[in-house]
Simulated scan of single mutants.
Amino acid sequence: MRKLAALPLFSLGFRPFFLAGATFAALAIAIWALWLYGRLPGAQPVGGMLAWHRHEMPFGFAVAIIAGFLLTAVPNWTGRPGLRGWWLIGLVAVWLLARLAWLLPVSPVLLLLLQIPFLPLLAWFLGRDLVAAGKRDNYPILLMITLLAGCQALTLWGLWIDDVGLQRRGVLAALWLVAALMSVIGGRVIPFFIQRGLNRPAVPAANPWPTRVLMVSGLFVALTFALGLHDVPRLWLGAVFVLMSALHLFRLWRWHDRGMWRVPLLWSLYLSYVWLVVAVFAMALWHAGLMSQQSLATHSLAVGGIGGLVLAMIARVSLGHTGRPLLPSRAIVVGFGLVLLAGLLRVFLVPFSGFGLGASALLWCLAFGVFLARYTGVLVGPRV
């Protein structure tokens, strides 16, 4: 048993959670697509396949990647040892049991109970180190993890009382909280990665107010989704999204460097952040009555934004934290393109053809399948 805890896989949080999150990303979308096209007969999980899909993509896939990233980043920020060994194995087991519960013949009560512990435990482990190190500037990230737990509770409550509207509110609030987290973390790491990746001189710190406004507006937007204020178009909410669009575009303009288009680990991050701008602007259009389907904005964020940023980030972090050169293989560069193309098909082709759903799902699964093929050995093996 000691040998299990001592494996490289459980030496730092990014290893098991990136591997588990990427595997689940490919499997979950494959299952969802097969069911949509009538190729997956049999019993459905509690609440039906739509409830499963809605819950598992933010609270299964996205949360696993967030956990892996933060359990690796917080030790760097605080100088404290990261979660490892049996404590890390236990946290992974809590996540895994929650995923399996949907697929096993368990009672609805047990299913819901198994979903609850992961995010509070993650918040506890992160908060313990941040508070001990006095890293108050990182407390907003801890707040977002706590709020994600609240969104999950809202979603599960909707599932328990069979209220589809409540489930949808919890899931959409969670997605836009993840967008706020993308904004905070992306605002730190993307310009830093561009500067380091291109050997540019350090630039003076940016004015903090745009970042603060984006963080506060992102939390506010998530709250409005939780309250159900996006059931009908509202011009004042459209104005909030216009402001966010402008600030995100300002960021992209400030970060841009022509040299990054020669570096896949940079343009993949940059273009994924562009998808976040597309999602925010699409919400502004919907609230102005200029776009008919709010789901197009949602999937701009979920597929192109979150999916693209996750794949680019886990590819880079996995190389850097295992001591390998930051030179991705050609296959994973193709993977970056596949997930971004999956976003394009899901948003721009689906309104005109049902073929777009299947094609987008296939490209998504291929992208994360490429990651697993190239990075499983990196994540389970020792540091170089």
Results as ranks from 00 to 15, higher is better:
residue 5 A to N: 01
residue 12 L to S: 14
residue 14 F to Y: 05
residue 22 A to I: 06
residue 25 A to I: 02
residue 34 L to H: 03
residue 36 L to T: 10
residue 50 L to M: 11
residue 61 F to E: 11
residue 61 F to H: 14
residue 67 A to D: 02
residue 74 V to D: 02
residue 74 V to T: 02
residue 76 N to K: 14
residue 81 P to S: 01
residue 87 W to L: 13
residue 89 I to L: 09
residue 90 G to N: 04
residue 91 L to W: 01
residue 98 A to C: 11
residue 98 A to S: 14
residue 113 L to C: 13
residue 116 I to C: 10
residue 125 F to C: 06
residue 127 G to Q: 07
residue 130 L to D: 00
residue 143 L to N: 09
residue 151 C to W: 08
residue 157 W to N: 13
residue 163 D to E: 08
residue 163 D to R: 09
residue 164 V to P: 06
residue 165 G to D: 03
residue 166 L to W: 13
residue 171 V to K: 03
residue 172 L to P: 04
residue 174 A to E: 01
residue 178 V to A: 11
residue 192 F to V: 03
residue 202 A to W: 09
residue 212 R to I: 12
residue 213 V to W: 10
residue 218 G to L: 06
residue 221 V to H: 08
residue 221 V to A: 10
residue 223 L to R: 09
residue 229 L to C: 05
residue 230 H to K: 03
residue 242 V to I: 15
residue 243 L to H: 05
residue 243 L to F: 10
residue 256 H to G: 08
residue 258 R to Q: 15
residue 265 L to S: 10
residue 279 A to L: 07
residue 293 Q to S: 12
residue 294 Q to Y: 13
residue 295 S to A: 14
residue 299 H to A: 11
residue 302 A to F: 09
residue 302 A to C: 07
residue 304 G to F: 01
residue 309 L to A: 08
residue 318 S to M: 05
residue 321 H to C: 04
residue 322 T to Y: 02
residue 322 T to D: 03
residue 328 P to K: 00
residue 328 P to G: 04
residue 329 S to W: 02
residue 330 R to D: 11
residue 345 L to K: 01
residue 358 G to H: 00
residue 366 L to V: 01
residue 368 F to Q: 01
residue 369 G to C: 07
residue 379 L to I: 00
